[in-house]
């Protein structure tokens, strides 16, 4: 599938919606860690899974904490929030502060990352959905510690994933110099629906 699966105008609209959604997500993360979040320019790329090179997307070495959530309804997508594991722990520490003792900290790691992921991913998707005028429902967030290659291979080799739309952006927490990564995966049927929503959005603003 060529990149022309979305027209230039549709890609531009999607990039702008993604930018607004991520800005809202970054504002939430900023509230959680009480620090400024720097954002890279968002990127949109469309791939045949066979054409995806893991090396090209190797954004992190070593173990990473990933929160995955599936959104269904007007927007159908799987969204991943990735942080290097060490930095994920720092974010949890910022969020919980003195609410839990050091000895309890490990016990809360998984639930805290699910809660952080849930807040950030919902903020992004809800903002985009509202701008597109659609409703969605979300699955429970799932937290795992994996390496980036494993995550990307799973996305690529999913038989229901004949085409990958990657919307990705870096979020940098200034104080920690921590880097987070937000990635949307979409299939062809969900892309067709997205294209129709984008066209309606564009008609409304013309």
């Amino acid at each position: 599938m060529p990149l022309s699966a979305l027209s230039d105008l549709q890609k531009d609209a999607l990039t702008e919606l993604f930018n607004i959604g991520v800005s809202r997500a970054a504002a939430c993360l900023s509230e959680i860690v009480a620090d400024e979040i720097l954002l890279s320019a968002p990127k949109i790329e469309l791939f045949h899974p066979s054409a995806v090179s893991v090396d090209e997307f190797m954004v992190f070495d070593g173990p990473i904490g990933s929160v995955t959530q599936r959104f269904t309804g007007g927007i159908e997508t799987e969204v991943l929030l990735l942080f290097p594991e060490k930095q994920a722990l720092e974010i949890i520490h910022d969020m919980l502060g003195n609410t839990v003792s050091l000895s309890e900290f490990t016990e809360f790691e998984q639930e805290a990352m699910c809660e952080i992921g849930n807040v950030i991913l919902n903020a992004c998707v809800a903002t985009m959905a509202d701008l597109l005028g659609v409703d969605f429902e979300s699955s429970m967030p799932i937290y795992a510690i994996e390496n980036f290659t494993t995550i990307l291979h799973r996305a690529i080799h999913n038989p229901g994933q004949p085409l990958l739309l990657l919307l990705h952006i870096n979020m940098i927490i200034e104080r920690h110099q921590s880097q987070g990564y937000l990635m949307f995966l979409m299939t062809i049927p969900s892309l067709n629906a997205l294209r129709a929503h984008l066209d309606r959005f564009l008609e409304n603003i013309r």
């Binding site: 939430c28 809660e115 903020a123 809800a126 969605f136």
Partner: peptide, 25 residues
Amino acid sequence: SANIQESNKSRAAQLGAKFVAKPVT
């Protein structure tokens, strides 16, 4: 809730409830 869709805010208002957006701070 983290789900800050306008539809959820409207439902809260219809119920006579208040909608507050997460994160918990």
